[in-house]
C-alpha cells in the first residue's frame, strides 16, 4: 500500500491562461499518495484544465501559458530534463468519453508496451501476461478473455471505459487522472467504475473530476472544491460535505448553483 501520508502531486501558485483568459488562478494543492481525491465544482471552473496540467497535455495548444510549479512524486514536472513521454507513462488519464483505439481489445492493452519497447524485446507470452493482468485488474478478464480480438470500439461503453483504464496499467503508472469518467455511463456502469476505483486505490494515486456530488462522497478520500479557477476548499471528503468551512462550498453542495 502506498498510503503513507506522502504527497503525490503538489502545485504551487499554479496559474494558467488560455490566450488572455485566465482559467486557473493561483492554485496550490497537495494530493496524497495512494488516495482518491475528487475535484468538484460547477461547469467551467477549471477542473479539466487543472487535471490536464498534471501530465502537461494542455501544452499541445500553443496559446496556453502557465506559471507556478507542479511537483509529481517530488519532481518538478517543468524541469528541463523532464521527458513528456516518461511523464505521461507515469501519469495516465481517463477521458470523459471512453476513447479506445480502433483496434482489438488485446492491442489496446498492449499499445503502451509496444510504443515503449523495441519490437523484438516483446515476447508474445509477456504481452499475454500483461493483458491478462491488466484486464483482471479492471474486472474485464472474465467477460472478455474469449473476445480479445474483438474490436474495442464495439464493446459496451462501460467496458470501453474500463479498457481505457486497463490500457494505462501495463505502463505501471503512479497517478491516474480521471475526467468525469462516468458521465457517458448509466447507473450500472457508474457503479462498476467506482468499484474499480476502490480496487485500484492504494496502488495508484487517483484524481477524479466529477459533477456528481454523491459520487464524490462515495468514492473519494479527499475533495477539492473549485470555483472560477480558484481552489475554494480542500478537505477530507466527509468534512467538506458535512462541515464545509466556506459558505460557497455549502451553497454548491446544497445544489444552489451549477
Amino acid at each position: 500500500m502506498r498510503e503513507n501520508g506522502r504527497n503525490a502531486i503538489v502545485t504551487r501558485g499554479l496559474s494558467l491562461w488560455y490566450g488572455s483568459f485566465q482559467a486557473l488562478i493561483d492554485v496550490s494543492i497537495e494530493v496524497k499518495e495512494g488516495q482518491i481525491t475528487s475535484l468538484i465544482g460547477p461547469s467551467g471552473c477549471g477542473k479539466t484544465t487543472l487535471l490536464r496540467c498534471f501530465n502537461r497535455v494542455n501544452e499541445r495548444y500553443d496559446y496556453v501559458r502557465t506559471s507556478g510549479g507542479i511537483e509529481i512524486l517530488g519532481k518538478n514536472i517543468y524541469d528541463s530534463d523532464v521527458s513528456l513521454v516518461e511523464l505521461r507513462k507515469a501519469v495516465g488519464m481517463v477521458f470523459q468519453r471512453p476513447n479506445p483505439l480502433p483496434v482489438s481489445v488485446y492491442e489496446n492493452v498492449v499499445f503502451g508496451l509496444r510504443i515503449h519497447s523495441k519490437r523484438r524485446e516483446l515476447k508474445r507470452s509477456e504481452l499475454d501476461t500483461a493483458v491478462e493482468k491488466a484486464l483482471t485488474e479492471v474486472g474485464l478478464w472474465k467477460d472478455l478473455k474469449d473476445r480479445l480480438d474483438a474490436r474495442a470500439t464495439s464493446l459496451q461503453l462501460e467496458q470501453q471505459q474500463k479498457l481505457c483504464i486497463a490500457r494505462l496499467l501495463p505502463l505501471k503508472p503512479e497517478v491516474i487522472l480521471m475526467d468525469e469518467p462516468c458521465s457517458a455511463l448509466d447507473v450500472e456502469g457508474t457503479r462498476a467504475i467506482e468499484e474499480q476505483m476502490f480496487e485500484l486505490k492504494g496502488r495508484y494515486t487517483i484524481v477524479i473530476v466529477t459533477h456528481n456530488m454523491s459520487q464524490a462522497r462515495r468514492a473519494s478520500d479527499e475533495s477539492i472544491f473549485m470555483l472560477m479557477g480558484r481552489v475554494v476548499e480542500h478537505a477530507k471528503t466527509e468534512d467538506l460535505f458535512l462541515n464545509p468551512r466556506n459558505p460557497k462550498t455549502l451553497e454548491y453542495i446544497e445544489g444552489r448553483y451549477g
Binding site: 507513462k89 495516465g92 483505439l101 480502433p102 499499445f111 509496444r114 510504443i115 494505462l168 505502463l171
Partner: peptide
C-alpha cells in the same frame, strides 16, 4: 481527436501516433 489523445496519453510521440493510428485510419 480522441485517438490522438489516447496515444499522447500513454506517452506516444507524434510520429508513433501518426504511424499507429492516424495513417491506418
Amino acid at each position: 481527436r480522441a485517438f490522438r489523445d489516447a496515444c499522447a496519453n500513454v506517452g506516444a510521440t507524434r510520429w508513433q501516433t501518426i504511424r499507429a493510428v492516424v495513417l491506418p485510419n
